[in-house]
Simulated scan of single mutants.
Amino acid sequence: MTREEWLSFTQEQKNARYKLQSKWQEEHDARVLQAIYNIVPKVGLPCTICYWSDKRAATVSRIISDRKIAVRHNKTNCLDWYGSRYEILSELEEEEEIFTKRRNGRWCMEGQAFKDGVHLMLHYQRHYIDPSF
């Protein structure tokens, strides 16, 4: 839609358009949340642990129950500290961290509240250490 077309709309037409956009956004958000909720972790699945501003590459190491998993950090090789470039290696560190699946379908570190807690993102790996801290 061009700017001229939008400016030619009446206020009722604009409000109808806003309602359509709002409805689409709500349906989209519901589909995204359902997709997140339906992710089933498996041993060896890559994941990312999100600590406030830092992110650590990890791998699911064992399934404790359908709502609890253990992950281990991947070893990394720093290529550029300030450029945040890391090579993620396939070797895993020894220490495990436990995450639980919450009612909203998201994974959070065991013993922490979901709000302001450490989260787990499944199916991709990213390693980022914020150099400003």
Rank of each mutant, 00 (worst) to 15 (best):
L120R: 09
E93A: 13
L79K: 08
V43I: 04
F99L: 07
D80G: 10
H119F: 07
N77P: 04
V71P: 01
P41S: 08
E96S: 03
T100G: 10
W81L: 13
E91G: 10
E93V: 13
A70L: 06
Y82R: 03
K42R: 11
S53G: 14
G105L: 10
R85I: 15
E91N: 14
V71G: 03
R67P: 04
T100L: 12
S61R: 10
T48M: 02
L89F: 02
K115D: 14
R56Q: 12
K75D: 03
Y51H: 13
N38S: 13
L20S: 09
N77E: 10
G83A: 06
R56L: 12
D116L: 11
Y51S: 12
E93P: 11
I88R: 00
P41Y: 04
W52F: 13
G105F: 14
V118L: 12
R56S: 13
A70Y: 14
A30L: 15
D54A: 08
D116K: 06
N77V: 09
R106T: 14
N104R: 10
H28M: 15
N77C: 12
W52S: 07
K42W: 04
K55T: 11
A113D: 13
E93F: 05
A70H: 02
T76M: 03
P41V: 01
T59D: 08
L120A: 01
V40G: 07
R67V: 15
C50P: 05
I69M: 04
I64W: 00
D116R: 11
E110C: 06
Q25V: 12
I69Q: 02
H73D: 02
E27A: 06
E87T: 03
C78H: 00
K55D: 14
W52A: 14
M109F: 13
R102Y: 04
E87M: 05
L20Y: 10
K115F: 08
